[in-house]
């Protein structure tokens, strides 16, 4: 706990991320920002706006258009004293970098018995709900979460975007930082500086409730909160847990929440099969079985390639679908 006055700002998620990059760069000269169009343009979502102007071309710069190259180059930078933050322009355009992520970024520390750490962050604008055309809306978190050696983080609001990114940049471990695109423009109060909010690995209860727990992360957190608000009007009290970090997973926090209500629904945009949502459902069932009054339910994307813009609303977990799932949690008739 610091005793200095806490600085606040009202920022959009994109601005909060920009501010986190800015503050990290100002504090630590080894922090570098690189990727496609992140330099003078400021990134296609303007997340890196102004960083080249302020810190110079050596600190925030455009690279050739090659995602494996960017990731592999960042491995070398990190091996040699830098803290690179790389931007993958869109979720589905991070796939060329997959080999570098899985075979090197995730494994280097383990391979070298802790001698080579890779303190780097892979920022990925991700998930849907923005009317994007094919390859611009993938929820790719399961690929990364399935890979030991990576931390996987997904903020759901501007405050967390700032805090978690500061934590990610300071972390000695590589972090996949998933930025829900549809929340880029959502505004909120942000606490600046480091060490305020809970860090990576801690889930938080966003909304108190006593009847059932909605477990969400990233883009589905606001939807879950909205569902809880609607339910409250119907006399049902839903708790909302925001994971914030998928890896490390906060088993203790999630279980405590679920045990307090005895019912749980997992809400995620990604296709449900073999996914983070199935992992959560399995963990909660294994660990909280005796407190559960109903099987854990999931509201997820269908097991289909992400739909075109005019059909995407069918894919995204909605308030209605969440409430339908809640209705099926074996309530005793009053």
């Amino acid at each position: 706990m610091t005793t200095t006055a806490v600085e606040h700002a009202t920022l959009s998620t994109a601005q909060a991320i920009n501010r986190a990059l800015h503050d990290a760069m100002a504090e630590d000269p080894t922090v570098l920002v690189l990727g496609e169009d992140v330099g003078p343009l400021g990134g296609v979502f303007r997340v890196t706006d102004g960083l080249t102007a302020e810190f110079g071309e050596d600190r925030c710069f455009d690279t050739p258009l090659a995602e494996a190259g960017i990731a592999g180059f960042a491995v070398g930078l990190a091996m040699n004293g830098m803290r690179p933050v790389i931007e993958m322009q869109f979720d589905a355009f991070a796939y060329p970098a997959f080999e570098q992520v899985v075979s090197h970024i995730a494994k280097m520390r383990n391979r070298t018995r802790g001698r080579v750490a890779l303190p780097l962050v892979v920022r990925i604008p991700y998930a849907g709900g923005i009317g994007g055309v094919e390859h611009h809306c993938d929820s790719s978190e399961s690929y990364y979460a399935h890979t030991p050696g990576l931390h996987v983080v997904a903020p759901s609001n501007p405050a967390d975007a700032y805090t978690l990114l500061r934590e990610a940049i300071a972390s000695p471990d590589p972090v996949i930082f998933l930025e829900p695109k549809k929340l880029y423009w959502a505004k909120g109060e942000v606490v600046l500086g480091r060490g305020g909010e809970p860090g990576i690995g801690t889930a938080v209860v966003r909304r108190q409730g006593t009847d059932a727990t909605l477990i969400a992360y990233g883009p589905t957190v606001p939807v879950a909160i909205e569902a809880a608000e609607v339910a409250a009007r119907d006399g049902r009290s839903l708790q909302v847990v925001d994971l914030r970090s998928i890896v490390p997973f906060d088993d203790a926090g999630v279980c405590a929440a679920v045990e307090s209500t005895g019912r749980a629904v997992v809400v995620a945009e990604a296709a449900g099969f073999a996914s983070v949502s199935s992992e959560i459902a399995a963990r909660v069932s294994e660990r909280c079985f005796h407190s559960l009054s109903a099987p854990v339910r999931r509201v997820t994307g269908f097991d289909i390639p992400y739909p075109p813009p005019k059909l995407e609303h069918f894919q995204l977990p909605s308030v209605d679908r969440i409430l339908d799932a809640v209705d099926e949690l074996q309530w005793e008739e009053a």
């Binding site: 570098l32 592999g72 491995v75 070398g76 930078l77 091996m79 004293g81």
Partner: peptide, 19 residues
């Protein structure tokens, strides 16, 4: 994994040059 070390080498070299 073939050739995957080559981009690392470039990153190490670039970091050294920045310093």
């Amino acid at each position: 994994p073939l050739a995957t070390q080559l981009p690392h080498a470039v990153g190490v070299a670039h970091a050294a040059r920045l310093r």
